[in-house]
């Protein structure tokens, strides 16, 4: 069952403000919001009731610092109580500056140190395949600067070589990699046999098409480019 309920932008904004509590957020918080909305509104087959269902889709937030919008969205979708958003990062809070899967319902991995999500995603995809679960997909959200970590390239090469068709990577490209990715981030994937789409990271329709319009025979990457608002 695909969740198709659009998140009310006003509600999401209010929840984000509740997390923010007057603090300044980095640009990465806002640049990730659109992708998260499209994923949770239109792509991922996960609900608060199915967080332990072995046949659910998996969403792995590898760039764990992009957490404020993630928490706001999880609250908007009912995975966590809205009251949890208050005092985020406080001594009694379950919501850290990076997410912990043991503390937050709906969070698939604890992340923070960059370059761990894609390897975990490959393992998750292999585990689902070994169990004959052909329906669920594994989505991993990374940043373009995170691609600096060599561990990603181990995962990209292996997933491509073995045609891991139930894996989708989303690279939020806000041009923050110190040395850039000449030729585009997508080329690092396609040279290894992935299919790829590079789209405007603010354009919900384009994101949805890029996330769903592929053949499922090979791993797929969507590069979501966000240049405005950093």
């Amino acid at each position: 069952m695909t969740t198709t309920t659009a998140t009310d932008p006003a509600l999401l904004g209010a929840l984000l403000d509740r997390v923010r509590a007057g603090r300044e957020f980095g640009a990465n918080v806002y640049s990730t919001l659109d992708v998260l909305q499209v994923l949770y509104d239109r792509v991922l087959r996960i609900t608060p009731e199915t967080v332990d269902d072995p046949d659910r889709d998996r969403f792995l937030l590898s760039k764990g610092h992009a957490v404020a919008g993630y928490y706001a969205l999880l609250a908007a979708k009912g995975f966590v109580p809205v009251a949890w958003l208050d005092d985020q990062g406080g001594p009694e809070s379950r919501l850290g500056d990076h997410p912990d899967r043991l503390l937050v319902p709906g969070v698939e991995i604890g992340s923070g140190s960059l370059g761990h999500g894609l390897g975990l995603g490959v393992g998750t995809a292999l585990g689902l395949r070994a169990q004959g679960r052909t329906d669920p997909r594994v989505y991993v959200l990374l940043g373009d600067a995170e691609l600096d970590e060599g561990s990603n390239h181990e995962a990209i090469a292996y997933a491509g070589a073995t045609g891991l068709g139930n894996l989708t990577a989303i690279v939020l490209d806000n041009r923050s990699a110190s040395h850039g990715w000449p030729g585009g981030a997508a080329s690092r994937f396609t040279v290894n046999g992935w299919t790829a789409e590079t789209v405007d990271g603010r354009d919900h329709a384009a994101l949805h098409t890029a996330l769903t319009g592929h053949d499922h025979h090979r791993p797929h990457v969507v590069v979501a480019v966000v240049t405005d608002g950093e």
């Binding site: 698939e108 991995i109 390897g119 975990l120 689902l128 181990e154």
Partner: peptide, 12 residues
């Protein structure tokens, strides 16, 4: 990747 894959497998 070997250890990351192990973690992902165990998660399933």
């Amino acid at each position: 990747l070997m250890v990351g894959v192990a973690g992902g497998l165990a998660l399933t």
